[in-house]
Computed example of a mutant assay.
Amino acid sequence: MLREDRWVGHYLPHWTSPERSRARYEIDGSGLRLRIDADQPDWREEDAPLRVSNLQTGVFSGPAGSPRGTHRHRPDGLVVRTETPEHVLWAPTAGHVEVTVSASVDEGCMLAAWLVGTEHLSEEDTGEICMFEIDADAVGEGKSHARCGVKAHSDKRLTTDMAEVVVPLDASKPHTWTAVWGPSGTIIGCEGIVVKHVPHAPDYPLFLLIDLFEIGPRSETAGLYPKTAHIHRVHGWDTSSAVP
């Protein structure tokens, strides 16, 4: 069972409806398998075609009709559709996260892990640490490509610093990504090797999101579903108290 004291099985539910935001997943012998199913609706009609199954370590929104909520991804009048009670389950201001995954190789899919500003203290806290974004078509037998770094979004205190990195492994097989952040900056690693260093980091609470997207038109053949990726292990350490 998914631990309800640590995880919310929805993707930013305040910007859409519960059925559209609900994660499809199952727990098996190797961990948790995220799914995109043939009957899964688009996350939001305005963002279609886009389907997602996501786990996140908390939720926050203002009242219905307000613009307040975690990860305001669009600048064109985004408002809360489903008021979501504030649940800050795990949201360190500095920390260390390790995520072991097997990425999807299904057409149109992307597996990602992000640490995003909760915004429950201030609507300026919008920054993001992108641990990894792995497109299915970027996965290879001997090497894979991924994107990682820091995204400022609308936080003027940060500078977006993203990179495409090459890791010498088949990302469809279990491998571990790491993010460490605090006053000295942000370090992102893969299998113990540093792949990105950014000299700054968000210094406010961040939720962890791990998600499988299907981007683009739905596959015409229902037999291609479900599209899947595995989360094998997640460990997180809150080092906020150790920061002066």
Rank of each mutant, 00 (worst) to 15 (best):
R74M: 13
G77E: 05
L78M: 15
L78E: 13
V79W: 02
V79A: 10
R81F: 06
T84G: 04
P85W: 11
H87V: 00
H87C: 05
V88W: 01
L89A: 11
L89N: 08
L89T: 06
W90C: 07
A91G: 09
A94S: 15
A94H: 02
H96C: 07
V99D: 00
S102I: 05
S102V: 07
A103K: 01
V105M: 12
D106R: 07
E107D: 15
L111K: 01
W114H: 14
G117H: 04
T118D: 06
T118M: 08
E119F: 01
E119K: 15
L121R: 15
E123C: 04
E124T: 15
G127C: 07
E128P: 06
M131L: 15
I134L: 14
D135W: 11
A136W: 00
V139T: 03
V139P: 00
G142R: 15
G142I: 07
S144N: 09
H145T: 13
A146Q: 04
R147A: 12
C148Q: 03
A152S: 15
A152M: 11
H153E: 12
D155L: 10
R157P: 08
L158A: 07
A163E: 11
E164H: 13
V166R: 12
V167F: 02
P183S: 14
G185Y: 02
E191R: 14
G192I: 06
G192R: 09
V198H: 01
P199I: 02
H200Y: 10
H200G: 04
P202A: 08
D203Y: 01
L206K: 02
L206C: 08
L208M: 12
L209M: 10
L209V: 07
L209Y: 09
F213N: 06
P217D: 14
